Amino acid sequence: MDPLDDSTVNQRLDGVPQWRREGDEIRRTVEARDFPTAIRIVDEIAVEAEKLNHHPDIDIRWRTLHLALTTHDAGGLTELDFTLAARIDGIAASHA
């Protein structure tokens, strides 16, 4: 899978407005209502990540999740990152 050019990355970010670009990654923070809910969100993300064989970096701080996506094998951002970002958005919204 080839990395996306800057123009395409910027267009794709419009579809996942809670994500921001930092270099070759996109990042988002999710605030859960409590720690058990945060862990349930991580569990659901793990299921989707396995389906796509694409795994985010996740930092858990009590009820705050910091997520980062990039496609290491491609050396940058690919469609896979934006596909998983959209699925994570759906998971986060279902727990809001």
Rank of each mutant, 00 (worst) to 15 (best):
P3A: 04
P3Q: 03
P3V: 13
L4R: 02
D5F: 03
D5T: 09
D6M: 00
D6L: 02
S7Y: 06
S7T: 12
T8P: 02
V9W: 02
R12S: 08
G15F: 08
V16W: 00
V16S: 00
V16K: 00
V16F: 00
P17G: 05
P17R: 13
P17M: 12
P17W: 11
W19T: 01
R21C: 08
E22Q: 14
E22Y: 13
G23N: 13
D24G: 11
D24S: 15
I26G: 01
I26H: 00
I26M: 03
R27M: 12
R27L: 11
R27D: 03
R28P: 00
R28G: 00
T29M: 05
T29W: 00
V30C: 05
V30H: 02
E31S: 12
E31C: 02
A32W: 02
A32K: 05
A32E: 04
D34M: 04
D34H: 07
D34F: 07
D34T: 07
F35C: 12
F35S: 11
F35L: 09
P36Y: 14
T37G: 04
T37W: 01
A38I: 12
I41Y: 04
V42F: 06
D43M: 09
E44T: 10
I45P: 03
I45N: 04
A46G: 15
A49G: 05
K51V: 08
L52S: 08
L52F: 07
L52E: 14
H54D: 08
H54W: 13
H55M: 05
D57T: 06
I58Q: 01
I58T: 06
I60E: 01
I60C: 06
R61T: 13
W62P: 13
T64P: 10
T64L: 15
L65E: 11
L67R: 05
L67S: 06
A68D: 10
T70D: 09
T71Y: 07
H72L: 10
H72G: 06
H72C: 06
H72D: 13
A74I: 10
G75H: 03
G76S: 07
G76D: 10
G76I: 05
G76W: 05
L77K: 01
L77W: 01
L77N: 00
E79F: 00
E79Q: 13
L80S: 14
D81V: 10
D81L: 03
F82E: 04
T83D: 11
L84W: 01
A85E: 08
A86I: 12
R87P: 08
R87L: 11
R87N: 07
G90C: 03
